[in-house]
Structure formats: C-alpha cells, structure tokens
C-alpha cells in the first residue's frame, strides 16, 4: 500500500516538473510570438500565439501565368485565407512544398512538360473602417516562383522572395 502511494506521489512529482517545463515553454513561445507579431513579422492568427481577433487575418492570393507563344497568359487568380505562406517583415520567406503539390492536383492541365508556369504571390490589405472595404482593398506583390515540369514527373521550383533566391525539386506525379 505504502509502495503504491510512494509510486503515485513520485509520478506526480515528475509530472509536476514536466508541467512547469511546459508552462515555461508556453510562456516563452507566447512572448516570442507577441514580439515578432508586434514587429509585423508573424501571422497574428497562426503559429500558436493568441493575437487572433486583434486585427483581420492576412489574406494572400496567387496569380498563375502560363508561358504561351511569345507571351504569358493569366490562368488563375485564387485567394488563400490560411497560410501556406510564411511572411516575415512584409516579404515572403517560405512556401510549403504541399502548396506546390496542390497546384498540380487542383489543375492537372496547368503543368506541361517544357512550358514554364509563373506564380505571383500577393498580400491583400483590407481597410478596416471603409464602408465598401472590398473595393478599397490593395494588393502588394510579396514574391514569385517559376515552375518547370520535367518528363520524369519532377518539378523544379525557382523561388524569388524579395532579395532571396532558392531552387529545389519536388516529385509531383
């Protein structure tokens, strides 16, 4: 009986330490989120901070262009409410690879071997106190990416976000 009670109190003692560690982690992250959000570097609605309902969540949109004979044709303009995009200091700094995979699944005819597809990423600024706020919204380009599908189903992605360039390949088919 005493052994069982000791065991319980021992497990509770260890749990208590774990709880304090988790509380420290929680406070640490909340303060970090608060700092970066206040600097305009993090999405207030995401990433486990508690700044939702303090300002409208950022709305991103993409415009997709496909290479044609000597020109580019705009294929699609789509809004994204939630973030596949990582924006820091008003510049796109990362896009999830899942986003590029989804592009292929949404529009299987979009990617063609030998034809370049360009995506322009934009952030929408919605005025809060205008009566017709949708008409007064403005867009800012925050980066672009060029996609090239190869015959083996691998897509090369060249991202250009503000002054940063990155190139990588993903398997899409």
């Amino acid at each position: 009986m005493n052994d069982a009670m000791n065991k319980i109190s021992q497990s509770e003692r260890i749990m208590k330490k774990l709880c304090w560690a988790l509380i420290a982690l929680h406070v640490g992250w909340v303060c970090t989120h608060m700092y970066f959000h206040h600097k305009g570097a993090l999405n207030p609605w995401k990433l486990g901070g508690y700044a939702m309902y303090t300002k409208p969540g950022p709305v991103y949109s993409i415009r997709t262009f496909k290479e044609q004979e000597n020109s580019e044709e705009m294929i699609r303009s789509k809004r994204y409410f939630y973030s596949h995009f990582f924006v820091t200091g008003g510049c796109l700094s990362g896009v999830s690879k899942r986003f590029y995979k989804k592009i292929d699944i949404f529009q299987p005819q979009l990617l063609e071997v030998g034809k370049t597809v360009k995506i322009v990423f934009r952030e929408r600024n919605l005025p809060m106190l205008e009566k017709d706020r949708r008409e007064h919204s403005t867009y800012k380009n925050i980066g672009q990416a060029t996609l090239n599908l190869q015959e083996n189903g691998i897509m090369t992605v060249e991202e250009e976000f503000c002054d940063k360039k990155r190139e990588f390949s993903i398997h899409v088919r």
């Binding site: 909340v30 608060m34 959000h37 206040h38 207030p44 901070g49 508690y50 700044a51 309902y53 300002k55």
Partner: peptide
C-alpha cells in the same frame, strides 16, 4: 497573452 495582444495591436 490574448489580452496583451489586444492591448498592443493598436486596432482593438
């Protein structure tokens, strides 16, 4: 945290 974020957001 939620109250502090509201306080510093400038919009709430």
């Amino acid at each position: 945290a939620a109250a502090t974020q509201k306080l510093i957001s400038g919009n709430f």
